[in-house]
Amino acid sequence: MAVPEIAESFTGSVSRVTIGATKDSGGTRTSTVTVGGARNVVYGGSMEETSEKPVIAMDVLDSRPEDWPDALAEAYKDVFDSPGDWAKKCVEEFGAELICLKFEGIHPDKKDLDASHAVKITEEVAKAVGVPLVLWGCGNDEKDNQVMPKVSGAAKGENCLIGTAKEDNYKALTAIALADGHNLITHAPLDINIAKQVNILVSDMGFPLERIVTFQATGALGYGIEYAYSIQERQRLAALGGDKMMAMPAICDVGYESWRAKEAKLVDAPGWGAAGDRGPMWEATTAICLLQAGVDIIRMRHPRAAATVKNFINQIRKKD
């Protein structure tokens, strides 16, 4: 008996977003990254219907992190004080195709660094590496509104991915991303209704839907991953059903969330296995799980976790 064809077909698709501009397009990047484009669920349908290959964006912080566990800090401690070298290490040693520059140090509750610092670091990282950049604010609305427009301007023409625009704080970043020609991350707190609303709000400001990447917030393995998973899944199904306000590629923050888990960072827990292995495993497992829900860009931290996930992507996407 013939095997019945059970693949579902859909009318809608996820939009494609290209990050980075090379010399030909007015930037200085040596490569670009294109994500999205899925016309079916993950593992559903034909090869032609799958998305562009998912990518890992490796995190680089604007200033020395104070709270990274040793198992994670080990890989970067020689470059902690030089974000340019840090980014270079991620690209040259760990094969990063995308760098996510996270401006943690500007947060008023952390180092409260100013815009000139952020601009300097942006220029330093842009000069050090040729891969496209993700520029990510500190999460404090007021400070981000002060600093991120300057950061955006410093990377003008590079076609970065900049974030994050939230329901109650989207205007400044949307306007500046539009003016400086960047792609935009819309951000919702694990709430699909707000996610759609933010997309509508930024699109009302004239921001093109096909230059948006969504961030639904992320939960790590054991810490709410099921919420993140089901929201990502629902976003993809809405996109495939033709909902243009939900048809964007998605980014998630696996590195930060995974390393908050005590299973990842606790050293003194002999029953849980080697401390140096637990963290990377926690991070890789979280990432691989979310990839299956249809996430397109994954922010990661530990090089071994990133290598595991990259290997996984290459294995399942051998035809690319």
């Binding site: 209704n193 609303q197 909902d243």
Partner: peptide, 12 residues
Amino acid sequence: NKQIYSDSFLKV
């Protein structure tokens, strides 16, 4: 539940 709710659901 055929369309995801958003505050602007009528408009969009």
